[in-house]
């Protein structure tokens, strides 16, 4: 397992910073990027799209599309489909084709962005140009209207053209009826960014968790944009309270997660949060925390947590800014 010394970590960060400086990227981008690749939400090349039915015996009713930068859920509707997240712009064409094939409708009438990162919002422009409704948190609308920096990838993202920006926003929670089913979309404050939404299909026992959850690895905190470890803990508490053990959770990337697994991860993050306070009071730096391996019991399942721990611990320094 690759472990980073402070020197290697900083050197990597500086190299990225040097490359990114001309585009205005911030240090924290470099720090995060130095700790893992590819970063969550980073722009990248298109890949082939795979489709998996989420609803058995009802082909195309709800389909999971993977390989386009993030997990995309397509829901068949009478006047067009509903998409939760739109993948990378480079994958948008292939994704929308796959969605059309799965749902039998070429038009996307509604797109919900779970957050503003490029891997979620790459289809906004195509959907917007076709007159589709784009739903997001108000913060997502704000970020997409400008060049935004992130801890999750080097450089900046945006502004997207006006037609690609959300047309309906919420700051808290809202819902819609789509193809006869109730859909809730609700704010998860400060979890992965500062504008995360989860999308709940209660009648289908399906929860699209967005950025705070990755299927088979640790999440990433965009601490440049308001995410912090306490918000992540609260997000898991919220998701665990909604989910039954058999609820299927669609993460931002990676395989589906059960409600039981979400409850387990909630416990992990709650325990970690307490442990970070212990480290905090001992005067640990982020490297010390990584070296202490507080998550070693879960590394076999979820991989090297160095990048996650770095962001989580640094977020404490921001949240607990001294007197």
């Amino acid at each position: 397992m690759r472990r980073l010394s402070r020197r290697r970590f900083l050197r990597g960060g500086l190299e990225v910073l040097g490359a990114a400086a001309s585009t205005g990227a911030a240090l924290h981008t470099a720090r995060a990027t130095a700790l893992g690749a590819p970063p969550q939400g980073a722009p990248g090349a298109a890949a082939s799209i795979s489709a998996t039915d989420l609803i058995a015996n009802d082909r195309g009713a709800m389909t999971l599309l993977t390989g386009g930068g993030c997990n995309v859920v397509a829901v068949r509707g009478p006047e067009g489909s509903l998409l939760v997240d739109g993948g990378l712009a480079a994958s948008s064409g292939a994704l929308l084709e796959a969605a059309a094939a799965a749902t039998g409708n070429a038009r996307v009438s509604t797109l919900i962005d779970t957050h503003w990162h490029p891997s979620q919002t790459g289809s906004n422009e195509r959907v917007g140009r076709e007159g589709g409704l784009i739903i997001a948190h108000e913060v997502t609308r704000l970020y997409l209207g400008r060049a935004a920096l992130s801890s999750c990838y080097p450089g900046s993202y945006g502004p997207l053209p006006a037609v690609a920006r959300p047309t309906k926003t919420t700051r808290d929670r809202d819902s819609l009826e789509f193809a006869g089913q109730h859909v809730d979309y609700v704010y998860l404050p400060a979890a992965h960014t500062d504008g995360d939404l989860y999308v709940h299909f209660p009648e289908r026992n399906l929860l699209v968790a967005g950025g705070p959850v990755l299927g088979d690895t640790w999440p990433v905190l965009d601490i440049r944009n308001g995410a912090w470890v306490g918000g992540l803990v609260q997000a898991y508490e919220t998701l665990a309270s909604l989910a039954r053990p058999d609820t299927r959770i669609v993460p931002a990337n990676g395989p589906l997660v059960s409600g039981a697994e979400i409850a387990r991860r909630r416990d992990i993050y709650q325990q970690l949060f307490k442990q970070l306070f212990v480290y905090f009071n001992k005067g640990f730096g982020a490297d010390d925390v990584i070296a202490a391996r507080p998550l070693k019991a879960y590394e076999a399942q979820l991989g090297d947590p160095a990048r996650f721990l770095d962001g989580a611990y640094r977020s404490l320094f921001l949240a607990y800014v001294p007197d």
């Binding site: 001309s22 009071n281 982020a286 490297d287 800014v321 007197d323």
Partner: peptide
């Protein structure tokens, strides 16, 4: 004109006083 000075990533933010500092 856009050169950037070295960044400082301090390892320790907690002093002997027992509280964080920026």
């Amino acid at each position: 004109v856009n050169a950037r000075s070295a960044l400082y990533d301090y390892e320790r933010h907690v002093t002997a006083e027992g509280r964080a500092k920026t």
